[in-house]
Every structure is written in C-alpha cells, then in structure tokens.
Design a protein around this nucleic acid. Structure first.
Length: 623
RNA sequence: GGACCCAUAGCUCAGCUUGGAUAGAGCGUCGGCCUGCGGAGCCGAAGGUCAGGGGUUCAAAUCCCCUUGGGUCCGCCA
C-alpha cells in the first residue's frame, strides 16, 4: 500500500502522452512543491523537455482518479489530489501500514560497537551502538535477514596491558557492588599510566639536563602524573599496590609474553583472558540493554587465530604478486596492484594513496587489519551474507579501505565489493576531550544516570507514569544521535538532551500518547460515513503525510538514513499537534466529521507507532 | 605535504545525492493562549552576504574550480 506512489504513477501516466516522454522517466521528475497552494505533486517542465512551452495547451484539463486537476504555473506542472480518492486507503489501512517489504530480501551482517573490552562504553561508542542498532532495525523492517555481531578485540596489546596489570595485582576479582567494566577500566588506565611514566622517565634519563627536548618531556610527564593522581584518588590502595608491584619490571617483555601465550592458545592464559574480557562484555551488555540494544553473536578475535583462519588468509596473500618487503616486514602493495576501475568498485577515493598493508610483523605476529580480513570472510560465510556492514568511525577509513583492497587482491572480489563501511563522525561532549588510555571519559552509564535523574524529576513534576521513565530516557538519548546525518559531527549536550520540547524523542512519544488516547476513548466503531468536505487545512496536510509514509520509510531504510525518518515523524507530530489545538475530535457533534477525524488520528497513530519502532523508540500509551 | 569530512539564523540542525517556485525547524529572545478530547501543547514577532571568490546554467545553498577556517587520518597501534 503506497498511496502517494500510486498518485505519482497516475500523474506520470496521464502526463506522458502530452509531454511526449515515457512514464518511467517522467516518474523521476515528480517532486513535492514547497508551498501547498501550488499543489500536491509537481514537475519542473524544462527538466523534462525543452519544448515544454508548445505543450502547455495539451496538459490543460488532464485528470485521473487520484488526480482531480492539473495546472501549469510558470515552468511547473502542478497536480492536485482528490481528497476523496486519496482518503480511501485509510479505510482499509493495516496495523503495519507503511512498513513496506523489499522485493529483493538479502542477508545482511551488521557489525557494530565492537569496543575494546578494557573499559566501559563511552559517548563515542554510544553513537556507534545506536546507529548500528537502527541500521539493523531498518533492514529487518524492510524484510531483510539481519545478523548483528560484536567483534571482541581480545588479542590486541590493550587487553594484554590490562591482563598484565591484573597479573601484578594477583588476578583479583572485582569487588561486589562495582560494575565490572568500570573496575577493569580503572585498572587498565592505572597500568597504562604507570607504564608510560616509567618509559618516559627512562627516555628523560638519557637526555641532557636543560635540553629543549627534555623540557618537552617534562611537561608530558607532569600531565601523566596528573592523570595518575586522578586515578589514584578513586582506588588508592589498588593503585599503590599496583605501582609497587610494577617497580623494576620490564613491562614490554611482560606484555609481549602475555600476547604470545594467549595467541599460542596457552590454557591458563586463555582461562584468565576470557574471564576478564567476559566481565567487560557483561558490563557492555548491561549498559546497552537499557537502550534495547543487543547482539546475535560475539566473535572473538582469538578464535580466528586459533582456528587457523588468519593463517589461511595470510598464506593466500603471501602468494600474491603484490607481496613485498616493507621496511623489513612482509606487506602487500595495495596502491600499485589495483587499477582505477577496481578502485571505483571498492569506493576508494581517486586521489588517495593506499598505504601498504603489513601482513606480519618482523617477529611473525599479525596485526589487527590482517585479522580483520579473516573476520570479514567469516561474517560473509557464517550468515551466507550478501552484504556486510561495518559500523565504524570515520577515523578508520584507511584501514577499512585496506581491508577491502586486500580482500580484492586475495581473490574475494564479491566480498570486497559488498563490504560496506557505514561511517559516522565524532561526538563532541561539550568540548571535553576524552582518553580511554588515561581513564578520562564520561561513560555511557554516567550519561544515562544523569538523564534518568532529570527525567525522573520531570515525570514527578508532571505526575506522569513512573514505569515508563526508562523508555523516555531511551528516546531522549536516541533522538539527537539519530536526527543528525551520520557523516556529520554531532554535539551531545546533556542540557539539550533533557529538553523534551519539540525537537526530541519524548515529544514524539507524547504526541503518540495523545493520538492513542483519543482513539482509546472513542466508543463508536469506525465505518465509512466520512465527510470529505471536512478534509481541509491541517487535516488535508496530515492525510498527505500519512500517504507519503511508505515512501519515506522505504527510502530511509534503503539509504540507511535514519535522520530522514526522524525528520518526517517530527513533521507529522507538529502538524497533528497544530490541528489538535484547533478542532475537536471526540466532541465534534457532526457524526461524519467525527468519523473523518478519527480516521486521520488513526493514521497518525499508526505511522508514529510504526516509525518509532524502527528507530528503537517505544511508543508510549501513557507517560 | 597528501587524503577524507564539515562550514546555512545568537546556538543546535534540515534542505545538497537527482539544480527549479518566497532557504525551513527547534532552542534561546520578545509577545499572546489554560471552564472542553493529555499544556512534554498551540498562535505570533524579531533573527540569513547559505564561509569567501570564480565558473557552468534559462535557473545554484545544491554541480565544477580556487581560497579560507575547523575536525580526522596518513604506525611492524587498534
């Protein structure tokens, strides 16, 4: 059911002979006029044909079933829709109206969040998680099969540093009452800061007093000591014990040893690493569940090493002609072995010089991007995926390009072309700089609590429903991150987020509740005694918006553009509220007018409900 | 130095993909609306060299080129 689509088809059909342009190409030129007195559908004639002036007379008086009149105004052909014909779809509108299924369902893997399991999730991950979740919801709503995965980077140096710190502390258990990922984050940051202080000190000892370089190092040292003090304040005894235990130890070789043992599959080390990484993941799941975000599969990077999948892809790349020696390490030359056509197929910018991909360090160990090649193949294989979408920050553009290029050179052309980097920009949190390594960040949980607290006081103030506070917080958090185009930087300001005025998730929920409650208080059943003369002003605007919803939904999902859906729902809510204040619905005495208006409310209720669900926002019946 | 992203009202953002009619919202500011279906609402006002310059076009916020400003990336890190 796509009412506006039908109207466009009809316009194309009736205008096609007069303009001498075929229907399909005419369809592309149909737009919506900026002002409503200009019509409901419009075609800029010069775009269609240069000789439009000769054809104006032929266009005069055209009409159809949905189109009651066309008018030529200046260079435009404007069409006006018949309220009565258009309204008819509302009489038979299904519950899932607008959630149009695609004609070509595909299998999609969506990988998102994939945060390092060494500290709690923070505001940067929040944008990733919410975009990833909504991308998955949009694709599912379109009828695709979707598999959501989280990649656990458990073989990196950062996890090894965390494990090293824990080892020096005698592998303690997290104290009860403390969230496990938070506790791990503190220990990781402490270990890291102490390591950096030690190595900086060593560097400084080798520099002459008074040298400029030494002065620079000193100011860096002051900064590190500042971070260390801040960390110590939170857990003084743990910090002191760790600092003592780390004195006089060669940290780098200890960390390397941990990596070596773990990658080699040492049983004790496997048990230890998996336990602590598991704690971090527990924390992630807990934080994200409050926002209704979950995963189908957690993939461990280490499994790819142990299973030999990484070795296999390396071996196949080793026989590639693009293999060369890069500063003593084995690497793949991605720049010279891809022609301009392949680059285009892989969406690699023309002017970009692709850095070589180091396959193996000179000590024989592998790097993240190499392992990611094996992981990409696993994602395609295990879900029989047509496309794999990686929701990853724009900063990782180059590694993502290297990944696609490497897959291509390894002979996985289809996979390379169907691997999509869904890129998003930075999140600025009121100008504050964050650093996971230094333990300086505002965690997702902190943000959630702040917003929850303010929401609670607002709900109490308005004597609202306490049980739904969580849903209001969820929509308040999602809205600002979904209403901005992903490639734009977004600023996340808690003061703005808790403003539940028009530009907010709670406003949409409020509007939904309004519409729902009108319908729930209606005691007569809906029949076809509609008064078509009553469809004017805002009511007519709303009818048009309801008619457009299937098209907006499909386009937003196919283009992975949640912001379009958000903007549309906002417009629906605004128009509905504007009308609501002017006219009565249930109290309207004329039965046919009341019927007409109830159908319109029903339409608003339906598209807000369906639209919000796609965005992961729960439409509330009471708030 | 090279690459990518961004620049629209005091602030936060739509509109740019596919050029088209008087560039739209929200916040904030100022002024109104609570005896009726949910006031988290409604109505109104002020506020713009669409970063700057050039080009293409009947037509440019939108496409192309240059410049400026901001962000990010360019590692045997992830």
């Amino acid at each position: 059911m796509n009412p506006i689509g039908d109207a466009k088809l009809e316009l194309a059909k009736i205008a096609s002979p007069a303009l001498g342009v075929d229907e399909t190409s005419l369809l592309k030129y149909i737009t919506y006029p900026p002002r409503k007195d200009q019509g409901d559908l419009s075609i800029a004639l010069p775009q269609v044909t240069k000789e439009y002036k000769d054809k104006v007379s032929l266009l005069d008086g055209l009409k159809g079933k949905l189109i009651k009149e066309v008018k030529v105004t200046g260079i435009y052909l404007n069409a006006f829709l018949s309220e009565e014909s258009l309204f008819s779809f509302l009489l038979t509108m299904p519950e899932d109206y607008g959630i149009e299924k695609t004609e070509k369902p595909l299998n999609f893997v969506v990988e998102h969040t994939s945060a390092n399991p060494i500290h709690p999730l923070h505001i940067g991950h929040l944008r990733n998680s919410i975009l990833g979740d909504v991308v998955a919801r949009m694709l599912r709503a379109r009828g695709h099969k979707v598999n959501v995965r989280f990649y656990v980077n458990d073989t990196g140096r950062q996890v090894a540093i965390l494990i090293y710190g824990l080892k020096r502390l005698g592998y303690p258990e997290p104290p009860s009452g403390v969230k496990k990922d938070y506790w791990l984050g503190q220990i990781y940051a402490m270990t890291n800061v102490i390591m950096e202080i030690h190595s900086l000190k060593k560097e400084m000892d080798n520099l002459p007093e008074d040298s400029k370089e030494r002065g620079e190092k000193q100011s860096k040292m002051d900064e590190l000591v500042g971070s260390a003090n801040a960390l110590r304040e939170k857990m003084p005894d743990v910090f002191d014990r760790l600092a003592d235990a780390m004195l006089g130890v060669d940290h780098d070789s200890e960390v390397s040893k941990i990596i070596e043992l773990y990658e080699g599959g040492n049983d004790d080390m496997k048990r230890i690493v998996r336990k602590y990484v598991g704690y971090a993941l527990e924390g992630f799941k807990e934080s994200l569940s409050k926002l209704h975000i979950s995963f189908d599969v957690f993939d461990f990077e280490s499994d790819l090493l142990w299973s030999g999948e990484v070795k296999k892809i390396i071996n196949s790349l080793l026989s590639s002609p693009a293999k060369f020696n890069h500063k003593g390490a084995i690497a793949i030359n991605l720049e010279e072995y891809l022609d301009s056509n392949s680059r285009k197929d892989l969406s690699i910018p023309e002017g970009l010089e692709i850095p070589p991909l180091v396959l193996m360090r000179s000590d024989g160990t592998t790097l993240y991007t190499t392992r990611d090649i094996a992981y990409t193949l696993r994602k395609f294989r295990e879900f029989n995926a047509n496309r794999v979408i990686n929701v990853i920050a724009e900063q990782q553009m180059v590694p993502q390009i290297q990944l696609r290029a490497s897959l291509y050179l390894a002979g996985y052309k289809t996979e390379a072309e169907n691997l999509i980097h869904f890129s998003y920009g930075m999140v600025n949190l009121q100008g504050m700089k964050m650093s996971g390594r230094m333990g300086k960040y505002i965690s997702l949980d902190d943000i959630y609590s702040m917003i929850e607290e303010i929401t609670r006081s607002k709900v109490n103030e308005k004597k609202g429903v306490v049980e739904n506070i969580g849903e209001i917080v969820n929509s308040a958090i999602r809205y600002p991150l979904l209403s901005v185009a992903p490639n734009k930087p977004v600023s996340f300001n808690v003061n703005n987020v808790v403003n539940f005025d028009q530009n907010s998730g709670p406003y949409l929920q409020y509007t939904y509740a309004r519409a729902f409650n009108v319908l729930s208080k209606n005691e007569t059943s809906l029949d076809s005694s509609v008064n078509y003369d009553d469809i004017k002003a805002e009511k007519r605007d709303i009818l048009l918006l309801i008619a457009k919803f299937p098209e907006v939904f499909s386009k937003a999902c196919d283009e992975l553009a949640p912001e379009d859906l958000v903007a549309f729902l906002r417009q629906v809510a605004d128009t509905f509220n504007s009308w609501y204040d002017k006219e009565r619905i249930l109290q309207e005495q004329d039965k046919t007018k009341r019927m007409t208006r109830l159908y319109i409310v029903k339409g608003v209720e339906t598209i807000l409900r369906n639209g919000l669900e796609v965005l992961g926002i729960v439409p509330l019946k009471r708030m």
